[in-house]
Amino acid sequence: MADAMQRLIGLLRQLPSVGEKTATRLVFHILSSPPDYGHALAQAVADVVERVHPCRRCGNLSETSPCSLCADPRRDQSVICVVEKVQDLLAVENSHEYRGLYHVLGGALSPLEGKGPDQIRATELVDRLGSEVREVILATSASVEGEATALYLKKRIEQAGVRVSRIASGIPVGGELEYIDRGTLALALSGRREMS
């Protein structure tokens, strides 16, 4: 096999879920496509690496800083939704239920990995809590690490005199009660709300 092909297979294999066979198949697919496709793919990879960086305000990945979400004047500047990673931001954004700002922590506190507050963007969040911010929504995951992060941030944000809320946990849409585990059901019951 040509050296260039082997090099590309080796690089593709480093991608998640891509093994030797898949990488080889991808290389043959690129070679059998029109040359423009291969050039466009290479250029797109180079563009992502060179142009995409974390937004200096919220940590979202963007070609501009501040990113398009931070710079959008139509978004509610008084609410910040805190997420662990950019993929979580995209998930909240795809819900079309939220029109405020975001803050990406870049991870969560982890006792078993020794990951402490200095390894997430917590101070950057507190620095953003100016007079116009009314509420911070903690949308960290419902794991021990996510809860630890939420508890830590709650303390820091309340010291700044800003209201803190936590996203709800409970039964997923379409879920049947008999199949829900005890812990999730307990959370759903304790977090119940009055029907409007």
């Binding site: 506190l109 982890s110 006792p111 078993l112 990995e113 020794g114 990951k115 402490g116 507050p117 200095d118 830590y152």
Partner: peptide, 12 residues
């Protein structure tokens, strides 16, 4: 690692 985590918590 968890001792390091506790040390960091104590420092904040």
């Amino acid at each position: 690692k968890s001792r390091e985590f506790l040390r960091k918590l104590a420092g904040v």
